[in-house]
Design a protein around this nucleic acid. Sequence first.
DNA 1: TCGGCAAATTGACTTTTGTCAGCCGTCATG
DNA 2: CATGACGGCTGACAAAAGTCAATTTGCCGA
Lengths: 321, 321
Amino acid sequence: MAIRPADQIVHKAAWLYYAHGLRQDQVAQQLNISRASVAMYLRKARETGIVNISTSTQLFTDDVMARQIEDAFGLDAVWIAPHGDHVDPAAEVPVLASGVFLELVRKGDKIGVAWGQTVYAIADVMSYADLQDVTVVQLCGNLGAPFAYRPDQCTMEIARRLNAKGLNFYAPLVLSTEALAEQLRNEPVIREQLAGISDCDLALYSIGTIDADSHVVKCGALTASEMDALRQEGAAGVVAGQIIDRDGAMLDCGYNRRCISADLDSLRAIPKRLVVVQEPNKFEPLLAGLAGGLCTHLVTNAAMATRLLDHAKASARGKAS
Amino acid sequence: MAIRPADQIVHKAAWLYYAHGLRQDQVAQQLNISRASVAMYLRKARETGIVNISTSTQLFTDDVMARQIEDAFGLDAVWIAPHGDHVDPAAEVPVLASGVFLELVRKGDKIGVAWGQTVYAIADVMSYADLQDVTVVQLCGNLGAPFAYRPDQCTMEIARRLNAKGLNFYAPLVLSTEALAEQLRNEPVIREQLAGISDCDLALYSIGTIDADSHVVKCGALTASEMDALRQEGAAGVVAGQIIDRDGAMLDCGYNRRCISADLDSLRAIPKRLVVVQEPNKFEPLLAGLAGGLCTHLVTNAAMATRLLDHAKASARGKAS
DNA sequence: TCGGCAAATTGACTTTTGTCAGCCGTCATG
DNA sequence: CATGACGGCTGACAAAAGTCAATTTGCCGA
């Protein structure tokens, strides 16, 4: 909580430069150090969240399509990244999502974070902030797989960026038997953590696909053929490591019963549920998530937005006829 | 609410530069404009709060004196500006106060603002923000005096800086008779506004002195000799244009009864009450305000902090003996 | 007390950003 | 239809910020 003596100078430099608007050479003079050091301290200040630079994301909500999707699916807010007509189209959605995320976070909040490539990409471009009284909790159990986007990695990276407390989940995501999963869920430590999920203020997740490329398959929680079987049984998407059906309800299957993760009611109890979807093949999973009320705030790209609207119009016509 | 077409380009430039980290020439290329225009748009973005740059004020709370004052006076948080060993010592407290103010404001808040040179100085150095759903309300009636720090000016300037809604108080601060003041207070428009003060989330004020230099004297609400008489009667400070005694209670006097302003209970109902005091001669008034529980968050300078602590220690000894 | 080593600091150079006079298109006016 | 005023945009230059190799500082163990 207290400022380390070594950081004192960083705070001072940042204050003189950003709050008072002095030039770097003036700051250097004030603090009796070289201008090069000032430049270094200022970079450090930005990188550690002592200084915060945020850009309004209004540009992306202020859009007819975004409004139409809000209305069609009853969402609180929708952000649409335009077609990647610029340098790095793949980065657009994560950068936007991280901006939106930081706009939604409040001091003292408890934030639930799931996992996946999308979530990790967001963490990776997120700018640093000084939110020491924020807690970031992992929404589901862990996987041993050596991927950067594992649940614990996602949680910790976001906590690190925010200078927040990170609360990891020390249990596997999926166990070999239902009985063991049940026992573990009843362990006080685990039970407490699961129970605490519903009093998060904000949740961040993407929705996974039901195919061989799914992160649950890549990380070894399910085999490609098991996944295939689940699709036959009505699986439509993955939320926090669990399989949901087309209506966004938990699929009644052995895999889910062997999972240790946030149950969907707990997720729905979180007031702000930020869902970020980028890849085109996540259309069906996203529809399932929307149907299940798992999303209040949505960040996606223009292509996906168009498909969502087309779908909404089609089903509206379907009902009318 | 919607972005003006002319501002679209400002948003885009700000997004590419600050969120994606492109250089100005790359942004210029993206948007097919000259780099000079990009530089201009970026300045505009900073000046209108599309981009927000904020610096942690932790340096100034993270201080033994600040902690001691918190404890001694039971405050939620205290910030102390160090001795003016740098370029513009007079600006230090207002700059700090505006930083603290912006840290305390939340989206959707209703903010009460009083008036005076200190408050106006804060407004004047405050950086721009994009808080469109914030409401800034004037805590007391108006004065005709041609000073920039009039109640309505303070309110409007802060509202302008935040891009917030400003709600002015269309009544004089002080009337010639008690009867007229009472009648006016009962006018529905005025009554409503006064009643609404207690559901502010945050208040900002300084505490005025009881002397010929007081802003209420300069603005003609009281003459110097009237002020002198009030001091004999126990006046110790001025809050939102009204006179308080040494205990921070409303002084029972004709002037106060002729005032149209927030009553002290309404102020105390506001959860965050940010008091900013800079001038040495405001020591007694500040003590009165603290005694009356009119302050939860305090911004001041090192000299004042020392005096406060000395006073607290002295009265602790007094009680002990 | 003295090397030896890592971390912090700096001077000099390069790149990026800020600025402003002048230009160009637009629009209202005579 | 010419004119002039105005606001926004740009090119070219000046100022400021970023970078990095070289140097200094502080610190540890011998």
